[in-house]
Nucleic acid binder design. Structure first.
Lengths: 170, 170
DNA sequence: ATTTAATTGACAGTATACTTACAATACGGC
DNA sequence: GCCGTATTGTAAGTATACTGTCAATTAAAT
């Protein structure tokens, strides 16, 4: 009789799983971001896209997705929303008819400057409960882990590759 | 002239933000889970729900949401999908006509038992790149941080409260 | 130079994750 | 026992996040 002893299942199968903990922390991070930045009507993803377009004016959607490691399909919708809010504009690339280049508008640059302190506050708040030394340790291990697992993600970060033929502005 | 010196924006505003790193790790965690468990057609969230229904048979959707800290609305759809796959059944509660109680089916209990090793493999893989001591440190800090930030999340974990009048089976 | 392959943005479809709102039901104070 | 209130499940609407696919276009192979 095979499989005669099924392992007894406990909630530890959920609570101690790193994947569960990362999910919870991500949800906490988004909640804190939204709370601190509620005056600005910008989501964390939209903020990351704005920052990247700011540091790489004229980047296209595919390269943007590689630089922040967000899915290309998802980013299409994000870009549409940023455009609807008049924070960015899309201009057709002269040398490649498929490509649309992304630029910040004045309003986009303004929001980005204004939201920064609130973003910093949110980022600080989510580590606040830890002792300063533990914050540094966690951030260091987390940075290492994300980097070492880069290829495991569906959309690996390709910061360098993506910018090879751009003006190397970031 | 106010605001005459806008802070120069760099990609560090994204790359070093803990929120960004948590988002990346969550995406990596999901990718690894899906890859290891592709034979089973179960998502991480569906797995967590199945485990909880297994350890708390007869739990209702609202309490389930509190025990795994997932949004109540989201969970409605998750439950529908688990029901469509015949992994769970919903039975009306005799003493409260609003409530529908959740139970595993034989198939649900079977999948849960079979998928466990693959889930463990995925969870191990995402920490694998770190040295064993660093894995322990990260997991400890992450667990602390999630717990200390519990109230900041939109759906705080309420494991105890949620089970007060249940049979205390977990 | 013409066929083949790769890239780009777009779209459809599924699955979380959250908000607000709502009807049905249950419960509290009185 | 009635009434205001809270709870439960559900639904609609928005925003990620991923899978495919597709047409248009460009690049590469020969």
């Amino acid at each position: 009789m095979p499989n005669s002893k099924p392992t007894p299942v406990t909630m530890d199968a959920v609570y101690t799983a790193p994947g569960y903990l990362f999910r919870r922390m991500q949800q906490i991070a988004v909640a804190l971001f939204i709370e601190e930045c509620k005056a600005f009507d910008l989501t964390p993803v939209q903020y990351a896209a704005l920052v990247t377009i700011s540091t790489h004016p004229g980047i296209d959607a595919t390269r943007l997705s590689a630089v922040i490691a967000f899915d290309r399909s998802t980013l299409g919708n994000v870009i549409e929303r940023l455009q609807a809010k008049d924070y960015i504009v899309r201009k057709p690339a002269p040398e490649d008819k498929r490509v649309k280049l992304l630029f910040l508008t004045k309003a986009g640059a303004g929001v980005l400057n204004e939201i920064m302190p609130s973003v910093d506050k949110a980022q600080a708040r989510m580590l606040q409960p830890l002792k300063p030394a533990d914050r540094k340790t966690l951030l260091s291990l987390l940075t290492q882990l994300v980097d070492l697992n880069n290829e495991a993600s569906r959309v690996p970060l390709r910061a360098e590759d993506a910018l090879e033929h751009l003006g190397r502005s970031g």
